[in-house]
């Protein structure tokens, strides 16, 4: 998603201003002149300054032009047509799904859903996607649960080595 420098710069100005304001409202430390408020306020001012410079287009000459994607994208993005950029949100959405579902469904099922959905969205064949979804979660579970003792949730389906 390409935004103009005006928008990202403006956003930074806003964020910097918020950081400054938020920092200035922090309580001071009794007996000390320099407290937790100083640093966010310094950074906030810096962000406002940088954001303004960016919005004005200063420093633009240093940048390499972003290559434009013109070829057809396989998988979900290709099918979404005009809304193709939405496909980029699939990976973070799957991570959130993992957080919400792992405790209830257990690691193996959640991971399988995650891998299946990601593979299909990337344009994998059903055979490849299902194969991955069946094999990858147990393998990852084995390494992390047995070798590294990471307490992965069991949920509905427990691994035999758990």
């Amino acid at each position: 998603m390409h935004l103009s420098d005006r928008i990202t710069g403006g956003f930074l100005v806003l964020l910097g201003a918020l950081a400054f304001w938020g920092g200035s409202r922090l309580p001071g430390v009794p007996g000390q002149d320099v407290g937790p408020a100083v640093f966010p306020m310094v950074i906030g001012s810096g962000l406002v300054l940088c954001g303004a410079l960016i919005a004005l287009g200063i420093g633009r000459s240093f940048e390499a032009p972003e290559p434009d994607d013109t070829d057809a994208t396989p998988g979900l993005a290709g099918r979404l047509g005009r809304f193709a950029p939405v496909a980029a949100l699939v990976p973070p959405a799957l991570l959130i799904f993992y957080v919400l579902a792992a405790d209830r469904l257990g690691f193996l099922l959640t991971a399988a859903v995650m891998v299946l959905a990601a593979a299909l969205a990337l344009g994998a064949s059903w055979r490849l996607a299902v194969g991955l979804a069946l094999l990858a979660p147990p393998a990852v579970h084995l390494v992390f649960y047995r070798l590294l003792r990471v307490p992965l949730p069991e949920g509905l389906l427990a691994a035999p080595w758990a």
Binding site: L108, L134, L135, P138, L157, A158, A159, P160, A162
Partner: peptide, 13 residues
């Protein structure tokens, strides 16, 4: 799900 998981990599206990 032993039936579904034909790979046999998993068994529930």
């Amino acid at each position: 799900r032993r039936g579904a998981l034909a790979a046999g990599a998993l068994t529930t206990i």
